[in-house]
């Protein structure tokens, strides 16, 4: 039925979805085109907003990607801090972890039959 994909527990038709997306997109783009499109290029108007401060340099006003998950790692620091400590950089430690995890999995598989 119109490209219906059934996974056994779920279903969706990508064709129908794409068709309605195209239809709604054309309406939305039509509405957007009815709006004002001009602005004063190369004036103060298109400078980035930094609370009235001048942009000293393009590079200097960027936010580093290392901050990206700050809120997430800060909220779950009780989980992440021990994990960071485990990452010693020593290949012997990593090999040890593989052996320990393999033993645990084998025991679980053995117990569950």
């Amino acid at each position: 039925m119109l490209g219906l994909l059934e996974t056994g527990s779920g279903f969706w038709s990508a064709i129908i979805w794409v068709v309605v997306v195209l239809v709604i997109s054309s309406i939305v783009i039509y509405i957007r085109n009815k709006g004002e499109e001009s602005y004063k290029k190369n004036t103060e108007q298109d400078k980035p907003f930094i609370s009235g401060n001048p942009e000293l340099s393009k590079e200097g006003s960027h936010i580093a990607a290392s901050h990206i998950y700050w809120g997430f790692t800060e909220a779950l620091k009780d989980y992440y801090n021990p994990l960071v400590k485990i990452h010693t950089g020593n290949i012997n430690d990593y090999s040890g972890w593989i052996i320990i995890i393999t033993i645990i999995i084998l025991i679980l598989v053995g117990v569950s039959g």
Partner: peptide, 24 residues
């Protein structure tokens, strides 16, 4: 009816396309 400002640091086609995609 207000001006549609695209900042000089923006990537215009993504900056303008995203509102359409979000609403759709």
């Amino acid at each position: 009816i207000k001006e549609n400002i695209v900042p000089e640091n923006a990537v215009p086609w993504i900056f303008n396309g995203v509102p359409v995609m979000t609403l759709v």
